[in-house]
Design a protein around this nucleic acid. Structure first.
Length: 274
DNA sequence: CCCGGGGCCTGGCCGC
DNA sequence: TGCGGCCAGGCCCCGG
């Protein structure tokens, strides 16, 4: 469930902790999560220095001396940095030990997360092959292209926004929040949106994700653990996980339906199907 | 090409 | 109390 804001929060956290550190060795306890060649991963990682931390959509990027480590947290991936002693943890799948004695541990209860080691010159092609859309910023997220893509599709707008091709970074929580703010019903087909509605969805995507980054992401009780550290964006959620509660705009009871297999929250009055 | 659904995973939670 | 079955969902892949 980490969406763009949570991944960005992790990126900023790691930037403070591991920049300049040299990897001494790696301990891979769940090899299936390494999606590129395992032998090469084990051979190439030791000796690399963490140069910078990056992010593209929900992908976390470790810029190493001469490789890029692409890490996707999927549902429940988390990183913990231990300066010296590493506690034994049931769901620790990859341990990255540094020469200074510190260790970065990747933990993931559901084991959905992935890691890939790539040559830097292949990064651009990697995201193109995934059809990953633009970053949700004024600079990158072009309104004209967005409207054009919507016009060509009969997909429900929510499913379309989730597929990462129109814009990168929305997940199931923020997409519901964006559509509530834009007053658009999640089942509406993409091509049924008016120009004004398309612009509103575009703008609110930038607003919601931007605000969520500022708030350090959302801390949702998943199981026992929280992700995203001290995020407070959940205090601003208006529909996600609010079924049965009153809409803050019109007092109508928030509904929850299944759409494209996803739990979907919306206000039946503010977000009319038309 | 598009769309829908299954698979990957585990643990919380519900109902019997 | 115990346990089976359902649910959570990002992304990939397959079949129609």
């Amino acid at each position: 469930m980490p969406e763009l804001p949570e991944v960005e929060t992790v990126r900023r956290g790691l930037e403070k902790l591991i920049l300049g550190k040299k990897i001494s060795n790696i301990d891979i306890r769940y090899p299936k999560m390494i999606k590129t060649d395992l032998q090469e991963f084990q051979k190439e990682m030791p000796g690399q220095v963490i140069q910078t931390m990056g992010r593209r959509g929900k992908y976390l990027l470790f810029y190493l001396s001469d490789k890029i480590l692409i890490s996707h947290l999927r549902m429940e991936g988390k990183y913990f940095y231990y300066p010296d002693q590493v506690p034994e943890r049931k769901h620790a799948h990859v341990l990255i030990h540094f020469e200074n004695g510190g260790t970065l541990v990747y933990e993931d209860v559901r084991k959905f997360g992935t890691m890939e080691l790539l040559a830097p010159e292949l990064l651009e092609a990697y995201f193109i092959s995934k059809k990953l859309g633009p970053e949700p910023t004024e600079k990158d997220f072009d309104l004209g292209s967005f409207k054009l893509a919507l016009k060509k599709s009969k997909k429900p707008i929510k499913s379309h926004l989730l597929d990462q091709t129109l814009v990168a970074g929305l997940g199931n929580i923020y997409v519901d929040e964006v559509l509530w703010r834009a007053k658009v019903h999640p089942s509406r087909t993409s091509n049924s949106l008016t120009a004004q509605e398309a612009r509103k969805v575009h703008d609110e995507t930038i607003n919601v994700l931007g605000q969520a980054v500022e708030k350090g992401g959302s801390t949702i009780r998943t199981y026992t653990n929280a992700f995203g550290e001290d995020g407070t964006m959940q205090e601003f959620h208006q529909v996600y996980d609010k079924a049965g509660q009153a809409c803050s705009r019109c007092e109508t009871i928030i509904e929850k339906i299944q759409l494209g297999g996803r739990g979907t929250h919306f206000c039946p009055k503010c977000q009319r199907r038309k």
